[in-house]
Design a protein around this nucleic acid. Structure first.
Lengths: 339, 339
DNA sequence: CTGTTAGCGCATTCAA
DNA sequence: TTGAATGCGCTAACAG
């Protein structure tokens, strides 16, 4: 049985308060008692129970990243790793722990109920989704990333619609008319039919606008429902390469999918961009390293994470925080050519 | 103020127990009272407090991954992402949450004291390190990954020494004698001088054995102290390429560093493997996608994470668990040639 | 099936 | 400077 604060107090001949002070507020007791208490605590291997402390202080010293996917799916996406780095930067700075919160047994609301955190960052969750109501109930401060800016919701993200429009503009301006699109299909894990693809929807809105402006019927876009994984990108690429009339360009809504396209093209002897133009989203660190370097819509995952976490910290501290729109930049590299 | 179990009990005209049962053990109360309690709970927006519950049940439903680096450093390494995927697989299966535990304000022991988890997985922490004593004090079950197998310690990992020896054997057998090595330098974050590079040390032991067998003085190896990042790999690569007598091969203790070498070689117009052979460790998913595909010592991060987490779950359940040695395989691809 | 009671381990206000 | 008392919100024997 682990030693408790009572054991220490008894053995040291002082009260619980004194022991507590020794650990949390040493200046309030004399040096002698402090030393004695600590020595005994050391002998008995006493460590204050963090859970009990949390119950008493009402703060956990942890924030959570709430994701509607399984952990499995998360860490195949380098962009999310970048977001985590940004969040981590703030955690280090503020001395906070980080919890990765995913649906428990497929039920996200379960996760939220059980989350022992001071606040949450969510990814891809927008207004109207039922989980937000749970945050309210629990009184949990939260910040969304890639959510939808709305009343009373602090969001951090780029303008996905505009960004997608700009990207499609560039592709169309280069003469492409037969275009494939790899989507962000996420397994739906909510308990009420929410689907977590706000980003997907907004980008398609942008694509549509660009197409209409260039006189291309949006229906002409060939949509492949892909997950955000290398393998899914490869599978869809194989499908494309096998088609009788191959598209001249493929737009991947995540860079990681594009890397899969690269691989299949290499295997099939199709050179990029001569045989197929490829563009992506995110500009993950490896995008500039592949050959040819990937044309992509750059957004800083690190910054998204950092700003979201910083905002959350302020929210927890009771401050008022505004949503933030981040810059996104079309980065044209060698993987896109004119036809 | 959030509603508590007392509020619900009073309003529903029942006792706390009944409310508790309604949430945790509905079969023990009648359907009518259950419905009434839940309706009122719903009206008042009541959600049981997870912290209080944890205090009473003595279990958090979470496990932690304890890392001696900052979060920033962790997520630049794809191999760790793979490990996280493996751990996540088990978390999903078992309905557990995952905490990323890193040094709080540079002090790992602080993190351990405050960790509200049922058990821990550590990375690169071996016997004799002071943090292990803290686990004991807190009575926390733990499993190490890439630690050192020892009495009473459950470890999961490959035989790094043997693996490194095999890899060096191959490099030497191909005639290389002027070899650069990029190490795993980790910022030391412990409070007592522990250094977290067990893996680094063991691999060097393996290198040394291979060198001696081939009649190459181990001192001839050119050691570059690099971090496990792309940038660090690039920086060291630049140093190599600038040297008057360039090595013929570079061994990176992490694939991610090798990608940095690829990039600098491309910029410098040095072709791989003609101008420089490159080999790595881990076989991260992208290793087979770069051009030329990377020769590397393959180990499954996913499996490491999965086995470690599975072992931890069993340990928490009170079972006895053995350490596990995983297979590692030298994967020869195009980036290594004979001289 | 439901209520009473006693913890879980610690923080903190108020007296002494 | 120290101690007694109270509360944090919930669970779980045990009794009814």
């Amino acid at each position: 049985m682990r030693a408790t604060i009572n054991d220490i107090a008894r053995k040291a001949g002082v009260s619980k308060t004194t022991v507590s002070f020794a650990f949390n507020n040493p200046s309030k007791i004399s040096k002698e008692t402090f030393d004695r208490v600590m020595r005994i605590a050391d002998e008995l291997g006493y460590v204050p129970d963090p859970v009990a402390r949390t119950l008493a202080t009402r703060q956990t010293g942890a924030i959570g990243l709430l994701l509607p996917q399984s952990i499995q799916e998360i860490f195949v996406n380098p962009h999310i790793s970048e977001i985590l780095r940004g969040i981590g930067e703030v955690c280090d700075r503020e001395g906070l722990s980080l919890g990765i919160l995913t649906p428990l047994k497929g039920v996200l609301s379960q996760t939220i109920r059980n989350a022992a955190v001071d606040g949450l960052i969510t990814l891809g969750i927008g207004p109207g989704m039922s989980v937000l109501e749970l945050f309210r109930q629990r009184g949990l401060p939260f910040v969304t990333i890639d959510g939808a800016p709305a009343e009373k919701i602090v969001n951090v993200g780029i303008d996905d619609e505009l960004s997608a429009e700009r990207l499609m503009d560039e592709v169309l301006a280069r003469g492409h008319r037969d275009i494939a699109i790899f989507t962000l299909k996420n397994v739906t894990l909510s308990d009420n039919g929410d689907h977590f693809s706000l980003t997907n929807d907004r980008r398609f809105a942008g694509f549509t606008r660009a197409c209409e402006r260039h006189g291309l019927a949006p229906e002409r876009l060939r949509v492949y429902h892909t997950e955000v994984t290398l393998e899914s990108g490869r599978a869809a690429a194989r499908a494309i390469l096998a088609e009788p009339k191959r598209p001249t360009a493929v737009i991947c809504l995540a860079d990681i999918q594009a890397f899969g396209v690269y691989e299949e093209c290499r295997l099939a002897g199709v050179s990029i961009p001569e045989g197929l133009s490829v563009v992506g989203f995110d500009d993950v660190p490896l995008a500039q390293l592949v050959n040819p370097p990937l044309t992509t819509l750059g957004q800083s995952g690190f910054l998204k994470g950092e700003l979201a976490a910083q905002s959350l910290v302020e929210l927890i501290a009771g401050k008022t925080v505004e949503s933030k729109a981040l810059d996104a930049e079309l980065i044209v590299r060698g993987s896109l050519r004119s036809v």
